[in-house]
Amino acid sequence: GSSGLPPGWQSYLSPQGRRYYVNTTTNETTWERPSSS
């Protein structure tokens, strides 16, 4: 899909309704949208 996220990243919603991002390669999580640069 065209999520616009860098490879390996997925976006999720927290129980509070906030969006966060997870790097499935490194298990890093961040509130900031990852850049593909």
Rank of each mutant, 00 (worst) to 15 (best):
S11P: 03
Q16G: 14
T29G: 05
Q10F: 14
S37E: 13
Y20K: 02
W9H: 00
R19I: 15
L5W: 04
T26H: 01
V22I: 11
L13K: 05
P15N: 06
V22L: 09
P34W: 02
G1K: 06
P6Y: 04
R33D: 07
T26S: 05
W31D: 05
L13Y: 07
G17T: 01
R18I: 15
Y20I: 06
Y21E: 00
Y20Q: 01
G1W: 06
S36V: 13
S14M: 03
Q10G: 05
P15G: 05
T26W: 02
L13E: 06
Y12K: 07
S2E: 14
S2H: 12
Q10D: 08
L5C: 05
W31H: 06
W9N: 00
P7N: 08
L13S: 04
G1T: 12
R18N: 08
G4K: 10
T25Q: 13
L13W: 09
T25P: 01
G17Y: 03
W31E: 05
N23M: 02
P15D: 08
S3L: 15
R18D: 10
G4D: 14
R33L: 10
P7V: 09
V22T: 05
P15S: 09
E32R: 09
E32W: 10
P34Y: 02
Q10L: 15
W9A: 00
R33E: 07
Y12W: 07
P7I: 08
L5D: 06
N23Y: 06
S37H: 12
Y12H: 08
G17D: 01
P15A: 09
G8Y: 07
S36E: 13
S3V: 13
P6E: 04
P34G: 01
P6S: 04
G17L: 03
G17S: 02
W9T: 01
P7L: 09
L13A: 03
T30E: 02
P34K: 01
S35D: 12
N27T: 05
N23D: 04
S35R: 09
Y12T: 04
N23V: 01
V22F: 10
G1P: 11
T25D: 11
S36H: 13
Q16N: 15
N27A: 09
P6F: 04
N27L: 12
Q10A: 12
R33N: 09
P6D: 04
T30D: 01
S3E: 15
G4L: 10
G1E: 14
S2V: 14
S11Y: 06
Q16S: 15
T25M: 14
S37V: 14
L5R: 02
N23Q: 03
P15I: 06
P7S: 08
T24G: 06
P7D: 11
T26E: 02
R33I: 09
S11D: 05
T29K: 13
S14L: 03
W9Q: 00
Q16K: 10
P6G: 04
R33A: 09
E32D: 11
Y12G: 06
T26Y: 03
V22K: 07
T26Q: 02
T30A: 06
N23S: 04
G4E: 12
P34E: 01
S14D: 15
P6R: 04
V22G: 01
T26I: 03
T26P: 00
W9P: 01
G8I: 03
T29Y: 14
T26K: 03
R33T: 06
E32G: 04
S37I: 13
Y20N: 00
Q10P: 01
V22E: 01
T30L: 08
G17I: 00
Y21A: 00
N23L: 03
W31T: 06
W31Q: 04
L13V: 11
R19L: 14
P7K: 08
T24R: 08
N27M: 13
T30F: 09
T25L: 15
Y12P: 00
T26A: 03
R33K: 11
S14W: 01
S2W: 07
G4R: 11
G4A: 13
Y12M: 09
W31N: 05
T29A: 10
T29L: 15
S2T: 12
G4N: 10
S2Q: 12
T30H: 05
R18F: 09
E28M: 06
S36M: 14
N23E: 02
Y20V: 07
R19P: 12
Q10I: 15
S36W: 15
P15V: 06
Y20L: 05
T30S: 11
T26D: 02
G17F: 04
S2M: 12
Q16F: 09
R19V: 15
E32F: 13
S2N: 13
S3Q: 14
N27F: 10
P7T: 08
R33G: 03
S36L: 14
G1N: 12
S14A: 04
T29I: 15
P34V: 02
Y12F: 15
S3R: 12
L5M: 06
S11N: 02
S35G: 14
Y21K: 00
Q10Y: 13
L13T: 08
W31I: 05
P15H: 06
S11E: 15
S14I: 01
W9D: 00
Y12N: 04
G8M: 05
P15Y: 06
P15K: 09
R33Q: 07
